[in-house]
Amino acid sequence: MKRKTLRLYLLVISLALLGTATGLVLSAINSDLISYFVSPTQVTKEPVEPGRTVRLGGLVEVDSVGKLDDGATHRFRVTDLSNSVEVLYRGVLPDLFREGQGVVVEGSFNDNGRFVAAEVLAKHDENYLPAEVVKALKESGRWQEGAAATAINGSEGVDP
């Protein structure tokens, strides 16, 4: 065999081995370690003990956004359309924070089972549309809410 051909085979084999090894490692370690947040369903199935810091991701439930009586604490529910968790947050919400939009909250559960967030991050979806188009669609009644769900569910999205 020519030396060049040998080097080619050697390189292809080592790259294939490296790729396989990386793939095995990535699929073997718990994907929760790499994932940036957990879903409301996950924390409902396996409750997180109060006080432990977690990130919770989902959609801001429609008609759930309000404030506590102190007038400074935001209250809303984060949902993955199967389960939802009530979140309390004192602070400034990001510009993209909206009902029906994706959100990631970092904080911990208190003893009453409510999630107290120290940080609220908005997650935006992969849909880009001009504001005028959306306005026209809404006026003609053809606009469908919930497109943002794809942002949370990724490839298993519920996009029609």
């Binding site: 994907s31 994932s35 979806d125 188009v133 990724g154 996009d159």
Partner: peptide
Amino acid sequence: DWWNTLHQPASITRMDGPSIDPSM
């Protein structure tokens, strides 16, 4: 696609076509 990320998924290289309006 593999993990939960804050970053949103791809808009252009999707199975069902780009999710970006032509004007953008």
